[in-house]
Computed example of a mutant assay.
Amino acid sequence: MKLGVFTVLYGQLSLEEALDTIAAKGVEAVEIGCGGYPGNKHCNPHELLKDEAKLQAFKHAIDSRSMTISALSAHGNMLHPQKDIAQAFHDDLIATIDLAAKLGVPVVNTFSGCPGDHEGAKYPNWPIAPWPNDFTEVLNWQWSEKVIPYWKEVGKYAEERGIKIGLELHGGFSVHSPATLLRLREAVGDVIGANLDPSHMWWQGIDPVQAIRILGRENAIHHFHAKDTTIDPINVNMHGVTDMQPYTKMLDRAWQFRTVGYGHDAKTWADIISELRLVGYDYVISIEHEDGLMSIDEGFTKAVQALQPLLMKEPLGEMWWV
């Protein structure tokens, strides 16, 4: 396993400055935002695909620091019912897939997207209960008319270029749980897998270790994010886990993102790392920092310090004691 980081946390720095800061922490891999919600401050695929000199400079910035790119990311809502919004996200995703293929990066991370409730809708609709029956009707329409057809097309495009799609299981999008990921994977194929982030499992009430077991048995984990979550035992009784308060209202929210080790202890994270290896995931653990109680540098540094002793980096040997 290698320790990596999603570089968007250093979007205020140039690519070279960000890489120097990251490398100084002993991190070996980077996940780079290429559009969509994370933006493209460090990597604009539309530009790099058209300018060979810029592409070579980008590659040199990574290679000269002995780092690897674990994934390119273009998180967006390509199924947004407003066509111009959806098209912009789609264009970023396709350009990111093309760039990943050119760079030899095996995974592109994104969201599944979430459609509206009919062809004339203006905003996404995320059904979370089967009744009243309208909700089930909306969900069935979304999957049959939007989610599966879109990902069949894009999944084929990615597969033809040797790229795997890592969908982040994020609330508010059609694929947000192990079951919904496997549903889409069954319809589209093995090109679809998870960019599994335990923080989004915890607030939904899903045990990340069990999520890893479920998805790992299907070889359906393409990438992994390291981010923590804490659930407030009092506020959750007021607001529930679908708390819609702004993330800035940290005293009042039912849950909030934390840096690794500040939501769950080292034993829990050791169990997560062990489960990943148990199911055959021996790739990058990519830190994502979204802790509202810590600065960027402090949150990132603490995550590195928490994870470095837990990673298993050496190849598996034979069970000499058997």
Rank of each mutant, 00 (worst) to 15 (best):
R161W: 06
G162T: 07
L169S: 09
H223Y: 02
W203F: 14
G216D: 02
W203E: 08
I206N: 03
H170E: 10
P233K: 02
H222Y: 05
D228C: 10
R161H: 06
G171P: 03
S199A: 15
H170I: 04
R217L: 10
G155H: 08
F173V: 10
T230N: 00
I192F: 04
Y157G: 07
G193C: 10
H200I: 04
S199M: 13
N219Q: 15
L182P: 01
Y157V: 09
L215F: 08
A226S: 13
T229G: 10
H223N: 14
H200M: 01
K164Q: 14
K152Y: 06
V175L: 10
V188I: 06
M201A: 13
N235S: 13
F224L: 03
W203I: 05
R161N: 09
A220M: 08
A226R: 00
V188P: 00
I163Y: 05
A187E: 15
G166A: 08
D207Y: 09
P233E: 10
G172V: 11
G171N: 07
H223C: 04
I165M: 11
H222I: 07
I234K: 15
R183G: 00
V191D: 04
R183I: 00
K156T: 13
G189V: 13
G189N: 11
L184K: 00
A211P: 01
N195A: 14
I214E: 08
A187N: 07
S199N: 12
H225Q: 11
G172N: 11
I234W: 05
H225T: 09
P233H: 12
E159G: 10
Q204E: 06
G171I: 08
T230Y: 12
G193E: 06
R183H: 09
G155T: 06
H200G: 02
G189A: 13
L184P: 03
I163T: 04
R213G: 00
M201K: 02
S199E: 11
G205R: 04
I214Y: 03
G205Q: 06
L215N: 14
L196W: 03
E160I: 02
H170W: 08
D232I: 02
P233M: 13
L196N: 07
E160C: 03
H223Q: 11
A187P: 01
D190H: 09
H176C: 15
M201S: 13
R183C: 00
G162R: 11
R185H: 05
I221R: 09
E218V: 00
E160R: 11
H200N: 12
V154Q: 05
H176N: 14
D232M: 02
A158S: 06
E218T: 01
G166F: 01
V188G: 05
A179W: 12
Q210D: 12
V209G: 12
E160Y: 06
N235E: 11
D228E: 06
G166W: 02
D207M: 08
E186D: 15
S177I: 04
I221G: 07
S174W: 05
L181F: 02
K156P: 00
R185L: 06
K156Q: 15
L169C: 14
P198A: 04
W202S: 03
Y157F: 15
I214H: 00
E186H: 12
A187H: 11
R161Y: 09
A194G: 13
G166C: 01
I234M: 05
P178K: 10
E159M: 13
G189I: 14
V154A: 07
R213F: 01
Q204Y: 08
V175M: 12
E159V: 07
V188R: 08
P178E: 07
N235R: 14
A179H: 14
P233A: 10
A179Q: 15
